[in-house]
């Protein structure tokens, strides 16, 4: 981290310093001291209509979703689809392996095998339900974990914010509102003046 900053000495120049024309601003970052201030700032940014921005804090803040206007995630629907796939997959698996003699294409040695267990019909739903249950849980859980990672664009190995010396305190006692320059409404001077009105501890342009 420190080497990165050393390589880009202009990166932590604050707005108040006159550093001349800067190369490519990636984001504007406002620092706050407490939850109330950052919640207020989040509501202001939300109401201004920004879409590519984020709030960073040392711990989860209850109600931040509403303050940021974050819409409900689509993840539950993905998990439902994953679960149903697991359910039907488990059903198909148990049927094919235990109740059919259907061979696998291109694999002559692999085929369904009708195995008689304690005189039960080879196709007995009660015996298949534990398998279906497990595959449902498995695919639901995998969809939940990987869906969450993908929707959050994780793992993220690089973020311009890492270069900011101030941002290090986000894991300790500081709260940040960061507006991405790729936001369609992003205008450097307007964003700066809007955030300035929220009385941040500091305001910083983060460069890439």
């Amino acid at each position: 981290m420190s080497t990165a900053i050393a390589e880009h000495p202009t990166s932590h120049a604050s707005v108040t310093e006159d550093a001349g024309p800067l190369p490519q601003v990636a984001a504007v970052m406002a620092e706050f001291e407490n939850v109330d201030d950052v919640m207020h700032a989040a509501r202001t940014v939300r109401d201004a209509g920004f879409t590519r921005w984020d709030v960073h804090s040392p711990f989860p803040i209850h109600g931040i979703d509403g303050a940021m206007g974050i819409k409900m995630t689509v993840l539950p629907w993905l998990v439902l689809c994953g679960g149903l796939t697991g359910l039907l997959g488990g059903l198909a698996l148990t049927w094919w392996t235990n109740a059919s003699k259907i061979p696998t294409p291109f694999m002559a040695n692999l085929q369904g095998y009708q195995f008689l267990i304690s005189g039960k019909p080879v196709w007995s739903l009660a015996a298949n339900i534990p398998v279906m249950f497990e595959t449902t849980v498995l695919l639901s859980a995998l969809t939940a974990v990987f869906g969450m990672l993908i929707l959050n664009r994780l793992p993220m190995h690089y973020n311009p914010l890492f270069k900011s010396e101030r941002f290090h305190r986000v894991t300790d006692d500081r709260f940040f509102v960061v507006i991405d320059s790729r936001d369609p409404k992003f205008n450097e001077s307007e964003v700066t003046s809007m955030l300035q009105k929220l009385n941040p501890l500091s305001l910083e342009k983060v460069e890439d």
């Binding site: 304690s118 005189g119 039960k120 009660a126 015996a127 339900i129 534990p130």
Partner: peptide, 12 residues
């Protein structure tokens, strides 16, 4: 409920 049913059904 299913566990109870299935074990009894299976053991027969």
């Amino acid at each position: 409920a299913f566990s109870q049913y299935m074990l009894i059904w299976y053991a027969n």
